[in-house]
Amino acid sequence: MTTHEENYLAWVKDAHAMEKQAESMLEKQAERLEHYPDLKARIVQHIEETRQQQALVQSVIDRYDTSNSVFKDTMGKLTAFGQAMGGMMADDEVVKGAISSYVFENLEIASYTSLIAAAELVGDTEGARIFAQIREQEVAMADWALNHLPDVTEQFMTRDAAPGVEAKK
């Protein structure tokens, strides 16, 4: 295996761990949302996309007859759990969660952009196609998150200003 292929496969494994982290983070966020139905519905939709993305990334790993990184997957889940727990303590949990989701989507977009270039360099046209498909979904989610952030913020502020109304989730 060449150095290019070794780097590429390491990054593919990182992408798998990243998708595991995304799934865990999104599930925790969706579980806690009570008063923001549009946001919850889009997150639930993206959880399903994320699971499909994991399977696609795993298919690239499987073609190279290598295993995904159990350590990285576990660390990703623990990181997502820590992020979710930290957000639960914030009075403005829903707004901070929406901002964090947008930031994470952009991390995924950048990661898949790099993976596309690496796949092309090592001659993995199927991997490049898969990563381009996943990146399109991540771009769509990032666009949705950015476009709906003002609505989430306004809903939170309106709920927070109303006496006796829960706003944080």
Results as ranks from 00 to 15, higher is better:
Ala118Gly: 06
Ala80Ile: 01
Gln58Phe: 00
Lys169Tyr: 09
Gly86Val: 03
Thr74Tyr: 05
Trp144Lys: 07
Leu146His: 11
Lys168Phe: 07
Glu136Val: 04
Ala117Leu: 03
Arg135Gly: 08
Pro150Glu: 08
Tyr64Arg: 11
Ala161Phe: 06
Tyr112Asn: 09
Leu146Thr: 04
Tyr64Gly: 01
Asp62Gly: 07
Tyr102Glu: 10
Ala167Val: 00
Ile116Phe: 05
Met141Leu: 12
Gly76Met: 04
Val57Thr: 05
Gln133Asp: 13
Glu154Ser: 06
Phe71His: 10
Ile116Asn: 15
Ser67Gln: 08
Tyr64Ser: 03
Pro150Trp: 05
Asp160Ala: 06
Ala118Asp: 08
Thr74Ile: 01
Ala162Gln: 13
Gly127Val: 00
Ala98Val: 00
Ala145Lys: 05
Gln155Gly: 04
Asp151Thr: 06
Leu78Ser: 08
Met85Tyr: 12
Thr74His: 11
Thr113Ala: 06
Ala167Arg: 01
Ser101Tyr: 03
Leu115Ser: 08
Glu138Ala: 02
Gly86Leu: 02
Gln83Leu: 07
Ala98Leu: 00
Met75Val: 03
Arg129Trp: 08
Asp91Lys: 06
Ala161Glu: 15
Ala117Gln: 08
Glu120Met: 06
Gln137Met: 06
Leu78Phe: 14
Ala140Ile: 04
Phe71Glu: 14
Pro163Phe: 02
Ala118Pro: 11
Met75Gly: 03
Val94Ala: 08
Met88Asp: 15
Gly76Val: 05
Gln155Thr: 06
Leu115Pro: 15
Lys72Cys: 01
Gln155Pro: 04
Leu121Ile: 06
Thr125Ala: 13
Tyr64Lys: 12
Val103Asn: 07
Asp151Trp: 12
Ala117Gly: 13
Asn106Lys: 07
Ile130Thr: 07
Thr113Pro: 15
Leu78Arg: 03
Gly123Trp: 04
Phe104Ser: 10
Ala90Glu: 13
Tyr102Ser: 05
Val103Ala: 03
Ser101Trp: 03
Ala142Ile: 05
Met141Glu: 12
Arg159Phe: 09
Gly97Tyr: 00
His148Glu: 15
Ala142Asp: 09
Ala110His: 12
Glu138Trp: 04
Val103Thr: 08
Val60Gly: 09
Phe104Ala: 07
Phe71Ser: 11
Ser59Asp: 13
Ala84Gly: 14
Glu154Tyr: 07
Val95Ile: 09
Ala161Pro: 14
Ser67Ala: 10
Ile109Trp: 03
Tyr112Gly: 10
Glu108Val: 01
Met157Phe: 02
Ala118Val: 01
Val95Gln: 06
Val152Arg: 02
Trp144Asp: 07
Gly123Glu: 15
Ile109Thr: 12
Val122Ser: 10
Leu121Pro: 07
Arg63Trp: 01
Ile116Val: 11
Ile134Gln: 13
Arg63Phe: 00
Thr113Asp: 15
Gln58Lys: 13
Asp73Gly: 01
Phe156Ala: 03
Asp160Lys: 06
Asp143Gln: 12
Val70His: 08
Ala90Ser: 13
Gln83Asn: 15
Ile109Leu: 00
Thr113Trp: 00
Lys72Leu: 08
Leu78Gly: 06
Thr79His: 15
Asn106Met: 02
Lys169Asp: 10
